[in-house]
Write a protein that binds this DNA or RNA. Structure first.
Length: 277
DNA sequence: GTATGTGTTCAACT
DNA sequence: CAGTTGAACACATA
């Protein structure tokens, strides 16, 4: 569910939520499957007494720098972190893990679909497979052009692949392709210089707007995106094509259509986004 | 009952 | 090797 903008908002909130420099006093594990690379007992034992020194984002991963380790969290589709202050709370319906801090703050992890994972590691090596950060200085038009030229595949699955560019998901890819007027099934090697420049600008534009609007919160179900403080984002009100099937294209008025590309629901304007293979 | 989903990985195929 | 496809994970909703 959360893509780069949502994870960025969560990371920023966590960094300001009285967790920095606090010590983990106790770990509750309600569903052990959430821990990817260790047995639950080892995981809990190793975490206790470590301090949180820093909280950042890379791609869709949250990175907690601890005294001796790195804690990576991937929220996948429905994972959610909530910070509360009170003690002795009942567990939430899909709460799988809980960290108790020395200042009585509790970090809760809930995940309806149980796809989210926590990794306690001694290095950042796991992140080496991630591609360029789309909002960093490394992500230039030239870099994008080189990446596109190095593969020949449909542009939508290319953009969803975290090894090339890290952080885009289904929503922001559909939005960026609409913004750039590129059909999601165009092949990467067929894009013109102008199209590549538009795509580069569009990716940065939709991600920055998503962050400025504190993320996209679709629907009212509890599994939908909320930040760590429980806030909804407002970017769902700014979407141009995603889940707008049958509505007029904000640019030309043509009806938005929904097709399937790489097994994912894909929204586009058939007039603005012309298919050139 | 069926199909779908804001993500990723892996096996099996071309 | 490069790329594609389908299945898998698990659960709720329409």
């Amino acid at each position: 569910m959360p893509e780069l903008p949502e994870v960025e908002v969560i990371a920023k909130e966590l960094a300001q939520s009285h967790l920095l420099n606090e010590t983990i006093e106790h770990v509750d594990i309600f569903w052990p499957g959430v821990i990817d690379n260790l047995l639950p007992n080892e995981f809990a034992k190793r975490l206790v007494k470590q301090q949180i020194l820093d909280i950042k984002r890379r791609g869709k991963f949250l990175i907690f720098t601890l005294t001796n380790d790195i804690l990576l969290i991937h929220l996948r589709m429905t994972g959610k972190i909530l910070i509360t202050q009170s003690k002795n709370q009942e567990t939430f319906k899909h709460e799988h893990l809980r960290l108790h801090f020395s200042n009585n703050v509790i970090l809760h992890f809930e995940d309806q679909r149980k796809f989210g994972r926590w990794y306690l590691l001694d290095s950042l090596e796991k992140l080496n497979t991630l591609g360029v950060e789309p909002l960093s200085n490394d992500f230039t038009v030239k870099k994008l052009q080189e990446l596109l030229a190095a593969h020949n595949m449909q542009v939508k699955p290319f953009l969803l692949n975290q090894r090339f560019i890290a952080g885009l998901g289904n929503i922001y890819v559909d939005e960026a392709l609409w913004e750039a007027k590129i059909h999601p099934q165009c092949h990467t090697q067929s894009l013109s210089k102008q199209q590549i420049a538009r795509l580069h600008a569009a990716i940065q534009k939709v991600l920055e707007l998503g962050i400025a609007n504190l993320g996209t919160s679709l629907g009212n179900h509890r599994s939908n995106y909320l930040s760590a403080s429980g806030r909804k984002g407002s970017h769902q009100n700014q979407l141009k094509v995603f889940r707008h099937e049958g509505k007029p294209c904000p640019r030309c008025g043509e009806k938005i259509i929904k097709i399937r590309v790489a097994q994912r629901g894909t929204h586009l304007c058939p007039l603005c986004q012309f298919l050139i293979k």
